[in-house]
Simulated assay, not measured.
Amino acid sequence: MRLSSMADYAVVTMSAAARHCGGVRVSAAELATETGLPAPTVQKLVSLLTRSGLLRSIRGAGGGLQLARPAAAITLADIVEAVEGPIALTSCAPQGKHDCALEQSCAVRPHWAIVNEAMRGALAGVPLTRLAQGAVPAPQNEIDREMA
């Protein structure tokens, strides 16, 4: 599975917004400058993330954007779903989708829900607070391989 560019950019944008926590408001233009993303892309993402309840837009003097919830209460799964929709590895898995020629005879289809739950659970286990941190040390198993 690979995230779309927009989902990736949404994570980058939300991470930047999280670094402005504590009630500090930031503009979409500031997020674009900070992240290096094109301003129209950030503007589109801000609309999606606001509609999904992850960002809050305050108008007027002193307005701007801020996280709609504490960064610890926003997960990677929330951000990906705001841009991509429900997390599903196959097109047959989401409810109501019936575009697979094998749907009627597929013995694997009933099991995709378990896989999708595991994938969503893994993404839901990564809070925005962790994504907003600076460089993260390599996992221990990677360090062990480098030393071998």
Rank of each mutant, 00 (worst) to 15 (best):
A7N: 07
V136N: 07
A113S: 15
A68L: 08
R25D: 00
I74N: 03
G85D: 07
T50F: 04
T35V: 00
V26A: 07
L89M: 11
S5W: 08
T75C: 09
S5F: 08
N141I: 14
A101R: 08
I58G: 10
R2W: 02
V136L: 15
G23C: 01
S57C: 09
M147K: 14
E34I: 01
A39M: 09
L54W: 00
N141G: 07
R19G: 14
G36R: 01
A148K: 13
V12Q: 00
I79Q: 00
R51A: 14
V80Y: 04
S105K: 12
P70C: 12
P127W: 01
A118N: 14
P139H: 08
A17K: 02
G125K: 10
A16Y: 04
H98D: 14
M6Q: 05
P94M: 13
T41D: 00
E142Q: 14
R59W: 05
A135E: 13
Q95F: 06
M147D: 14
R120T: 01
I79Y: 01
C92R: 13
L49G: 02
D8L: 14
G125Y: 07
A132C: 07
V115G: 11
E34Y: 02
R145K: 15
C100P: 07
V108A: 15
L55T: 03
W112N: 13
A93N: 14
P94L: 10
T35C: 06
T13D: 02
R25H: 07
L76I: 08
I58C: 11
G121R: 13
V42A: 01
V11C: 11
A72M: 09
A101N: 09
D99A: 15
S105W: 10
G134R: 09
M14W: 02
A17Q: 04
C100L: 10
N141K: 12
P110S: 10
V115C: 13
A88E: 07
P86N: 11
T13V: 06
P127H: 01
T41P: 00
I87L: 12
S57E: 12
A72G: 14
E117K: 11
R19A: 10
D144P: 07
L102G: 13
G121Y: 06
V42H: 00
A29Y: 08
A29W: 05
K97D: 13
I114E: 15
G85H: 07
E103I: 02
I74P: 00
C100R: 08
T33I: 03
L55R: 01
